[in-house]
Computed example of a mutant assay.
Amino acid sequence: MASPLSADRLLAALRAEGVNVIEYGNWRTHNRNHKGAWGPINGVVIHHTVSSGTDASVRMCYDGYAELPGPLCHGVIAKNGDVYLVGNGRANHAGKGDADVLSAVIGERALPRTTDNNRDGNPHFYGFECINLGNGADPWPEAQLDAIERVSAALCRAYGWSAASVIGHREWTSDKIDPRGFSMNTMRERIDRRLEHGGRSGSYTVKAGDTLSSIGRAHGVPWKEIAAANGLREPYVIKPGQSLTLPGKPAPAPRFEPFPGVEFFKSNPRSPVVTAMGRRLVEVGCSAYGSGPGPQWTSADRAAFRKWQEHLGDDPQYCDGWPGRKQWDALKVPKV
């Protein structure tokens, strides 16, 4: 049974993953623990705020409102990738969901379809609200998606989970649609790549005579990053026998754009990913554009992708213009 992280350990885990953390208000003691259990911890839920503006969104998630007091999550992920910590403990974010989904998360299995809202998720999940209007048109900047990836990987790494422990709110309950505008399957792929190839490089046991500077020089890591990763503050005292987390290099950026999921395209997105896809379709001789391509998904994009599906020789039932994973991977859309 996984116990909640202390405030210092949570902060250190996020910073070790390269997250730009901003501590908001009295987040360390801001929680709803007096209303119920906090733990055992089993996973992470990603939300969108249905709001705009960083200051107003963070304040809303910290304070909550009359019908639902705050904190409404543990962290708020801004458009620029900054992460505001607003709570530490039980938060009003997950609500009722499907017990079978919780079992799948615990077992790190494929998620079942949500059919019942028969289990309180607030004791079991960390929650992160991402600033987005949730209308399918509000863009998701790469800095924000990168922060979601890093936050999720940090918690997975702290608990020894895989990315299967990270779910969207809509995957927890049939009553919600968040996060809308990107694919959670694609996000889990990003998280797994980070867990496998990037992030922390290990730990180091302090020896007599060591300083943060000497440890940093020996491992090629700035000493301030080691301090941040371990929650150390001035005067930065370390002691022999102490175990320190050593931040590693971030995962290499993928060469091609990962498959954003068919839901992304069906949400009528406006995104540079759509432009990159269109340009690639033109390059391979599958254009259906009178002008463009541009960032707004249109019927011309769907017609062009249908040409690509036919070019691949796919069965007619799979040539509907909606991108599938294998078809997308074969197109090799450059990373944007």
Rank of each mutant, 00 (worst) to 15 (best):
D178E: 15
S183N: 09
S183R: 12
T186I: 06
R188E: 04
D192K: 10
R193M: 11
R193F: 12
R193D: 06
H197N: 11
H197P: 00
G199W: 02
S201R: 15
T205K: 01
T205F: 04
V206Q: 00
K207E: 00
A208T: 08
G209F: 07
D210W: 03
G216F: 05
G220W: 02
P222Q: 01
W223N: 12
K224P: 10
I226P: 03
I226K: 03
I226G: 05
G231N: 03
Y236V: 07
Y236L: 08
V237M: 09
G241H: 05
G241A: 08
Q242H: 07
S243E: 10
P247N: 03
G248P: 14
K249R: 15
P254L: 13
F256P: 09
V262W: 14
V262P: 00
F264K: 07
S271A: 06
S271D: 05
T275Q: 03
V282G: 01
E283R: 12
S287P: 00
P293H: 01
W297Q: 02
T298Y: 03
T298K: 04
S299E: 13
S299G: 14
A300E: 08
A303I: 02
F305D: 03
L312W: 11
G313P: 10
Q317L: 15
Y318V: 12
Y318G: 12
